[in-house]
Design a protein around this nucleic acid. Sequence first.
RNA 1: GCCCUGGUGGCGGAAUCGGUAGACGCGUCGGACUUAAAAUCCGGUUGGAGUUAAAUCCAGUGCCAGUUCAAGUCUGGCCCAGGGCACCA
Length: 837
Amino acid sequence: MKDAYFPQEIEKKWQKIWEEKGAFKTTDTSDKPKYYALSMFPYPSGKLHMGHVRNYTITDVIARFKKMNGYNVLHPMGWDSFGLPAENAAMKHGANPETWTDENIAYMTKQLKMLGLSYDWDREVTTCKPDYYKWTQWLFLQLYKKGLAYKKEAAVNWCEECGTVLANEQVIDGKCWRCDHVVEKKYLSQWFLKITDYAEVLLEDLDKLSGWGDNVKTMQANWIGKSEGAIFKFKVVENDLEVPVYTTRPDTVHGITYLVVAPEYKDIEKLTTPENKEAVEAYRANARKMTEIERLSTDRVKTGVPLGTHCINPFTGEKFPLWTADYALVEYGTGAVMAVPAHDTRDFDFAKKYNLPIKIVIIPDDKKDDKDLPSCPPDLLSSITEAYTEPGVLVNSNEFDGMNNEDAKKAITQKAVDGGFGEFKTQYRLRDWLVSRQRYWGAPIPVVYCDKCGIQPVPEDQLPVLLPKDVDFTVVGKSPITTSKTFVNTTCPCCGGPAKRETDTMDTFVCSSWYYLRYSDAKNDTMPFAKDKVNKWLPVDQYVGGIEHAILHLLYSRFFTKALRDLGLLDFDEPFKNLLTQGMVLKDGSKMSKSKGNTVDPDEIFENYGADTARLFILSDSPPARDFDWSDAGVEGCYKFLNRVWRLISSNAEYITVSPFTLHSSLKKENDDMVRLVHIAIKGITNDISNDFQFNTVISKYRELVNAIYDWRSKKSELDDEDKAVLSFAILTLIKLMSPVAVHLTEEAWHDLGGQGSIHDIEWPKWDENLAKASSITLVVQINGKLKDKIEADEGLSEDELKELALNSDKVKELISGKTIVKTIVVPKKLVNIVVK
RNA sequence: GCCCUGGUGGCGGAAUCGGUAGACGCGUCGGACUUAAAAUCCGGUUGGAGUUAAAUCCAGUGCCAGUUCAAGUCUGGCCCAGGGCACCA
């Protein structure tokens, strides 16, 4: 064994050997239980960044740990390779998106291999390749046949910078998720996936996901945004129209003093009187000009104009005016709101501004005997300074007076149901998923348009609909795909007449919503995956990735899994059993980014320190879920530690035997202690990995064990047979424990010490519970709960003996002299607390 | 405004059940080796009081209460930071 540690040399050597041997290939047939470890696959942007390194290292260590613990592990990798950056790069450099993507994949594959990741590359999936997107298209057609994919004209989010529409989930604070450009509303005919059909089950099943963090689950729940309430219909006085409203506060219906419709409300023109037309038109025009960001700003002063018409409240017979105001949103509920200024802060603000009446219908429980309140004298009404939104008791509400407002919600809605002017209604904030993109580099939506036959799906035997190559990427204002001379014109699969292909491609999130299923059967060319294989490997046992996908990818994938289950393609209903959302990699307190110039290039780390140092460091300083602050000194420290480990092994190599040996039961004291420390390390490290993958403490324990072995060794100048056996046991165990992290170093050491086969094929070490504890205990002695003394004691002492030991301590005697012992608490093997007065 | 997560030394962070607060590392200070440096090794490092040095004592896990023999850990109320949602009726 060499004296010095040369990571670059040994890493290259072993990577080559592993590749030649096919060391990490997974078989579908095995007696062992399955374990599916998965990292979120990357977009091939060009180079790995430290976030990737962290993500893939975490999953790799998990996969290796599970393999050593007897599981048949699936650990695949692939590429989320459709998307705008490739197209932009193509425009900029005059290249083809495919060439650019292929080059990036090749480079990043090399980097992944340099990191020593244990992937089964035979299962690699690349979403931009026809053998993959054929099945994305096929799945789209299955959803279409089930009515889960449909085309409709709607107000959609448009990003001018990217030249395409976006899904709601891709609009962050009114801006494009990718380029930060302000998003506009456009009225276009687009393809949608009907995720709203699954709103309820997507929400309900969050409860099943005990292996997911609450943060992600609540983010999804908020996004789905379920609320329960009622729809009430109000007859218009001036004509025979009805205006339905959605409310979560049916209990306040007697307090309505006006009604608001959104400026884009469909019947607004018919609801406007000729005298008010001019003002209403002007208001609507102004609303159209405003950006989403301006309009949705909650601190903006509310504005609106009256329409001139009125409605009748069926509960009271009262007549109240209709207004339009942009605080009503056309896309939520019915686009119209019943206004109860006394019990809604927004309505209150609006009523105050326009001097509309405020009618109290709920009062706090403790005021219900106050006789003045229910009659609501006008001076009281004008005196309230804010809306009362808390629970309470109904007043001014006819037969519902005195009823608790929660009960009233049901009772009042029931009255509307019975009277035929209302219904119970559950509302979700979630909208259908807009999947059309006016871009080239995506999976073509497999439909054609025929003047005679309308929308026609492409027959399955004609899939894939290939992306055309004769495309001009320099066009502005339209999708490059439309410049193809061969793509657009085709024949109708129904009548054989001339037809036009859909030129929109699919959102890349469609491709990434099912890739984890494809890994189970990546080479299948007759189906996206065989049912038995997908049912065997899925759900993913451990999914690891960034929190930025908490809604987007993770919600879409859950939807896909449920939809595909309903199509009979698979038999489970959640794709990811356990989810680890790793924190960001920071440098100097902020996220690494090119614009800030605080990035660290993984290649430089591999070159200067080796992959094992990179892997060790990225796991060392923070638990996986928390943000990780990169420090150059920290890398240096890890490199030094691996050198220290290397020296420990190489300087003792001559004494170490890999062949089985037994340690006798009665060892010398220091050897017994050493063996115990090894067992303590095995136990601690195993538990830390099993318990939420606390790799930072795992690495602390590596260091403790190494320090302990050095310490033990420094006290011996000559080694007898027993010493050699103890040393061999300690060092070989250390190598095994470190093998999932320092994958190359441990393989080299194992090999140099004469180990058979690969260290990565052996079993994880086991500990002996009797040995995984110190030979004696430290008895903590407290007086009134404060630490006063520590006494070394035998483990086997009884409670009385421990108590006696504590009371005989000189320190304790001194401290309790002249005081009365009230009581004594003994915690076996640990502590004695003497309570004195 | 609502929801989630977190708050422990100079820093990253440890601390199964309530039972020795600060493991391990970074940084730093001191020492050994060396002509010197690097590398390596050894030791100190929460704050304050105390001492030539020690011993020792006091305080201490965001704040305020509470439960308990004993609270970083449990309960109630707040404060702060990060993230998510939001004129969603």
